[in-house]
């Protein structure tokens, strides 16, 4: 690991200034560190300065009516143990618990997961299905970006130089579910994952798939096929699963072949929709 300077500013303005004083590859933000440290160890990143965000006042979780706002540096474990998250955004609860172990989730953060945007992220697909919005703050001020415009590729985001993720907003409680296929069920990387959520306000299903490069993505054709109601008609669910399996831009990589993924995604979608609809997952 190349030597670097570690700073821990107390305010967002100071953090932005610490990052902005150096180029993007010379200064990197540190949240939980559970992903970043690997890149520092093997030299994929060799910054001169690491800016720890741990002292920023962003370890927050606020419900304002139907809207949930999660501070970017809140440890995932605190998101998972909020009783209202579990009942009002059950898919988010499940997706958070799919990340690492309890001890890892006491360190890892939602902002870190988004900022690092690993192609196999278990959180990004659920955020897509929940229409999460990302609040950013940087040298040019604050702006908000929908998550599907924020994660733009493998390890690539819409973050501008010295910009930070301040919080993530979820617009409404949604019946939702997250299911995955892995070699080992826990503490492994998903070969294929499906996030579904039903928006009562829009009378529409949202469906995202993940686990393959370059990034998790929404599949609007499947949402169209599922129709406007919860639970969907059996024939609509069949059609949605068929459309997802045959038309989604699924590819193969070292973790699973394209053919395997196209086959496994069918039952994953069917079970996820049934679970979001309040039925026990069928086999």
């Amino acid at each position: 690991m190349a030597p670097f300077e570690l700073v821990a500013p107390a305010t967002p303005d100071e953090a932005i200034a610490e990052l902005g004083a150096l180029g993007a590859s010379d200064a990197v933000p540190l949240a939980g560190g559970t992903d970043l440290l690997f890149d520092l160890d093997d030299g994929r990143l060799a910054p001169r300065r690491v800016v720890s965000l741990r002292r920023l006042p962003w370890q927050t979780l606020d419900w304002n009516g139907p809207i949930l706002t999660v501070g970017s540096t809140l440890p995932l474990r605190r998101l998972e143990t909020d009783p209202e998250v579990r009942t009002r955004l059950p898919g988010l609860y499940t997706a958070v618990r799919a990340v690492g172990s309890v001890a890892l989730r006491h360190q890892a953060t939602l902002g870190g997961n988004l900022g690092r945007s690993a192609p196999a992220s278990d959180l990004v697909p659920m955020l897509l299905a929940l229409d999460a919005e990302i609040d950013l703050v940087g040298p040019q001020g604050a702006r908000t970006v929908p998550v599907d415009q924020f994660v733009i590729g493998s390890r690539r985001t819409a973050l501008r130089p010295a910009e930070l993720i301040r919080s993530v907003r979820f617009p409404e409680p949604r019946p939702s579910a997250y299911l995955w296929q892995r070699v080992r069920p826990f503490r492994d990387i998903s070969q294929m994952a499906v996030a579904v959520a039903y928006s009562p306000a829009r009378a529409r299903w949202r469906v995202a798939v993940a686990g393959f490069p370059p990034r998790p993505l929404l599949v609007p054709e499947v949402e169209d096929a599922l129709g406007p109601v919860l639970p969907p008609a059996r024939s609509d669910l069949d059609r949605g699963a068929h459309v997802l399996s045959t038309r989604a831009p699924i590819v193969g990589d070292k973790r699973a072949s394209e053919a395997y993924r196209r086959q496994i995604v069918r039952p994953l979608l069917e079970r996820a929709v049934r679970r979001a609809s309040g039925e026990k997952a069928g086999s």
């Binding site: 741990r54 172990s101 006491h106 360190q107």
Partner: peptide, 10 residues
């Protein structure tokens, strides 16, 4: 927490 994934000074 996992002490192997935590910078001591953090």
């Amino acid at each position: 927490v996992l002490s192997c994934l935590l910078l001591a000074r953090d």
